[in-house]
Computed example of a mutant assay.
Amino acid sequence: MAEVDVVADDEAAPPPGAPTTDLLSLHESIAGVLATQGDWRRAYHHLKSAFDLARAGSLRDTLTSSYNRRYLDQWLHGPAVEHRGPPGIAIALVDLDLFKGVNDTFGHLVGDRVLREVADLLQQGLPPEAFCARYGGEEFALVIPDVDAARAVRIADTARIRVARHPWRRIRPGLSVTISVGLAHEIHAQPDRTVEPERQLRRADTLLYMAKRAGRNKVAYHDKESSQMIPRAMNTAESTGT
Rank of each mutant, 00 (worst) to 15 (best):
A2N: 14
A8W: 00
A12T: 06
A12Q: 11
A13T: 10
G17K: 12
P19K: 15
L24G: 04
S25Y: 03
S29I: 02
V33Y: 08
L34D: 02
L34I: 09
A35E: 15
A35M: 14
A35Q: 15
T36K: 13
G38W: 08
R41E: 14
H45W: 10
H46Q: 12
L59C: 05
L59Q: 13
D61W: 02
S65I: 03
S65A: 15
S66Q: 07
Y67G: 02
N68I: 05
L72T: 09
Q74C: 05
H77F: 11
R84Q: 12
G85W: 01
G85L: 00
G85K: 05
G88F: 05
I91C: 10
V94T: 08
D95G: 13
D97T: 07
T105Y: 05
G107W: 08
V110S: 07
D112N: 14
L115Q: 06
R116A: 11
D120W: 07
L121K: 04
G125T: 09
G125K: 06
P127W: 00
E129P: 02
C132T: 13
A133M: 04
G137T: 03
L142T: 02
L142D: 02
V143G: 01
I144G: 01
V147C: 13
A149G: 09
A149T: 00
A149I: 00
A150V: 02
V153N: 07
D157V: 06
D157Y: 03
A164N: 12
H166C: 11
R170K: 10
V181T: 09
A184R: 07
I187P: 00
I187D: 03
H188L: 14
T194A: 13
V195Y: 15
V195D: 15
P197S: 06
T206A: 14
L207P: 14
L208K: 09
K212W: 12
G215Q: 09
R216C: 10
N217G: 14
N217D: 15
K218A: 14
V219P: 06
A220W: 03
Y221S: 05
D223A: 03
E225N: 10
S226D: 11
M234K: 12
M234C: 06
E238S: 07
T240Q: 11
G241I: 02
